[in-house]
Design a protein around this nucleic acid. Structure first.
Length: 403
DNA sequence: GCGATCAGTT
DNA sequence: CACAACTGATCGC
């Protein structure tokens, strides 16, 4: 086994093939207009979005992949010089436009890297993904699953995006005379905006760069940059704040809507202290608990300010979906690709009940013991905070496949 | 002047 | 408060 033949969402020199799951900034750290470390595999949609994000990028490096078919990958062992053959398949990740998971198969075993993904089986795209995984894996087991563990904590649960989208429409309908602003990023949530546009039969204002993105995605009819045409505007999330809303309300009555999976757990479970103790020390966290949380909060809309609503519209899998996904695959190993805050806890900790007294959790305990011995794990809350702060500085995402 | 990293924001 | 995702300031050359 050698290091560094394949990189996924990592861009340092030294790999023979580079895979990009999707074009969000936290997966492209290290990519730049002058990057040229090797062939870059991505979907056609992602490829189309690269030039505006990285002007001057060498497009001859791109290798376009379609979902649902195996591609050969010829790799050379750095030490022995011998060739080894592998295959990979891209599967729609149901996250943002162009986003895929990558399934790899070779003498190193079978690995699945989900990238950011939403395992929402009421959605056709996820159903298709499931079919592709089933037919690709046949009787193979996934040896290592690298999973989007953003919300891999039982506190996180939210409804389907269709339900959340209808909640947004309901809010807008309940303010027929108001302007509406919706916080979005540079990519993603297009389906939400389309749903609003179609249900309310209006165009949605977006900022000029965002309109260009919409056009590259083939969306020409539902968006505009002319403010006078519409009362609904999608604005960059970083410019969406209480101050913004208060400022706008001095001119016209305006309601802000923030579609997001976050704010959907901790404070609902109990006080901060109560919860900290809970997930640090509690030893049996059962599925019933998750289900109760889900049932209680699935359809809540949160109005946390005079002018602002938060709606649980998320492009990441919530905890019950992660559980469903891991149960579906029964991988030998699970590793999280997100290392920040809550989710830095080994996902196996929260997933251990899936296999009962599973090997996953045994591995977690061994890992935990190793960390304890190395003095990484601290037991007091002060030290926990300190550790959390340090962890947040860690590089997020991705892995380097060792072949 | 630049790319990379840090700090701060919703 | 938290998360993902982003911007803008600062650092190092």
């Amino acid at each position: 086994m050698e290091k560094g033949m394949i990189s996924v969402d990592r861009w340092e020199e030294g790999s023979q093939a580079y895979f990009l799951s999707h074009l969000h900034a936290d997966h492209t750290l290290g990519l730049s207009p002058v990057w040229n470390h090797g062939p870059l595999y991505c979907t056609r949609i992602t490829a189309r979005l690269i030039p505006p994000k990285f002007p001057g990028f060498d497009l001859s490096l791109l290798r376009i992949v379609d979902v649902g078919r195996w591609y050969p990958l010829s790799l050379v062992s750095v030490s022995s010089g011998s060739e080894t053959n592998a295959q990979f398949m891209a599967i729609d990740a149901n996250h943002c436009p162009g986003a895929v998971m990558y399934l790899f198969r070779g003498e190193f075993g079978t690995m699945l890297y989900t990238g950011d993904f939403r395992w929402e089986l009421t959605c056709k795209i996820a159903q298709m993904g499931k079919k592709m995984l089933l037919s690709a894996l046949k009787n193979d087991k996934v040896d290592t699953l690298y999973i989007d563990n953003t919300y891999c904590n039982p506190s996180y649960s939210f409804p389907t995006r269709e339900v959340a989208a209808q909640q947004v429409v309901n809010i807008i309908n309940s303010y027929p005379e108001h302007d509406i602003i919706i916080g979005v990023d540079t990519l993603g949530k297009e389906d939400l905006l389309l749903y609003i546009s179609k249900m309310l039969n209006l165009k949605i204002w977006v900022w000029p760069e965002r309109l260009q993105t919409m056009h590259l995605l083939g969306l020409h009819d539902n968006f505009t940059t002319k403010t006078t045409l519409t009362r609904v505007r999608a604005v960059p999330r970083y410019s969406f704040s209480v101050e913004t809303l208060e400022g706008l309300n001095t001119m016209r009555p305006t309601i802000g809507i923030m579609p997001s999976g976050f704010s959907w757990g901790l404070k609902k479970v109990g006080s901060k202290d109560e919860y900290s103790g809970h997930f640090l020390k509690e030893t049996e966290m059962d599925i019933d608990f998750h289900r109760n949380i889900r049932n209680r909060y699935t359809n809540n809309i949160e109005k946390h300010h005079q002018y602002i609503y938060t709606v649980p519209y998320s492009d990441h899998s919530c905890f019950p979906e992660i559980v469903e996904f891991v149960k579906f695959l029964c991988p030998n190993n699970v590793k999280g690709i997100v290392s920040s805050s809550l989710s830095y806890i080994d996902p196996c900790y929260h997933l251990r009940n899936i296999y009962g007294t599973s090997s996953l959790y045994q591995k977690h305990l061994i890992e935990e013991e190793r960390e304890r011995v190395e003095g990484i794990c601290k037991s007091t809350s002060d030290n926990f905070t300190e550790e959390k702060r340090k962890k947040k500085k860690d590089k997020k995402v991705s892995f380097v496949l060792n072949v």
